[in-house]
Amino acid sequence: MLAHLASPRTGGLLALAAVIALLPLVLRNSYFYDVAVLVGLNAIVCIGLNLLIGYAGQISLGHAGFFGLGAYGSAILASRYGWPPLAALLATTFAVALLAFIVGRPILRLRGHYLAMATLGLGVIIFMVISTEDKFTGGPDGISVVPFRIGGFVLQGERIWYWVVGALLLVAVWLALNLIESPTGRALRALHSSEVGAEVVGINAAEHKLMVFVISAVFASVAGSLGAHYSGFVTPAKVAFLHSIELVTMVVFGGLASTFGAVVGAAVLTTLPQLLATFEDYEMMVFGAVMIGTMIFLPRGVVPSLARLFRSHRSADADNKANKA
């Protein structure tokens, strides 16, 4: 039973739940809550993106596109057309999943840098459409979004959103951990390492890549929709190439093929610019330097590198004990 608690699955989920529950003790004002909500939303995107990049080994440099489509879809349907936000969110998510399904098939036939280019291109095209079709999207100025409401209940204020996003983050982590430990998840990890190795045991690699691409797009889209309602405003900046890069960086920084790594990456790299905001002019430079430094010194990302360190310490301890005994 105790071993069960210490497993990365259960133990990790409990630890994350504890952090989410206790964090408000140190969140002093609504600005802190605001940053925490942003961390949560980015973490949800990164968990999905990590399934695609970290586990299945398929890079995407265009996920801000899906995030943006989620945000703008909800914004337009709920604010322009007066749809109930939940219906807008569901319809948008479905549409984004469908889009990912349609474009995913040809794109995912590509490999390596060609795949990077294609996903980048997809993201840029989505960005251009959003910033050009100003009749719907408000163009570069953006568009304001009504608050999220379900029935008579209105979700407003950082504190309420904190708990909502916290709960959703736990669900996202739980779903991702489940998937990875399933035959489907093993198939994804297998095709990452050797596509023919996977195919000759009966795995349809193309189908699995497409599936995980759609799942990651859905994670991004839902986070985009929620983010739009939360902040009450969306601009094309959230759809831009740079945002795609930020998302990938969070995943790689936290550690590829580590769900908790994706959360940590999102937390650190969402908070860092806030800390740097005081040195506004240096922000971009420092951010770039941090990216380079992490990749050189912790090439596996923060969480796997630390986990490895921890493990080797523990086994060293065990050796010591064994020697004494």
Binding site: G112, T249, D281, Y282, E283, M284, M285, I292, P299
Partner: peptide
């Protein structure tokens, strides 16, 4: 390092250089 890691490094470098140029 892996392809993704190298991509991140050069993207980091591009942000660094752009930030530096701004200064």
């Amino acid at each position: 390092a892996s392809v993704v890691t190298l991509i991140i490094i050069t993207i980091g470098a591009s942000m660094f250089l752009r930030g530096l140029a701004m200064l």
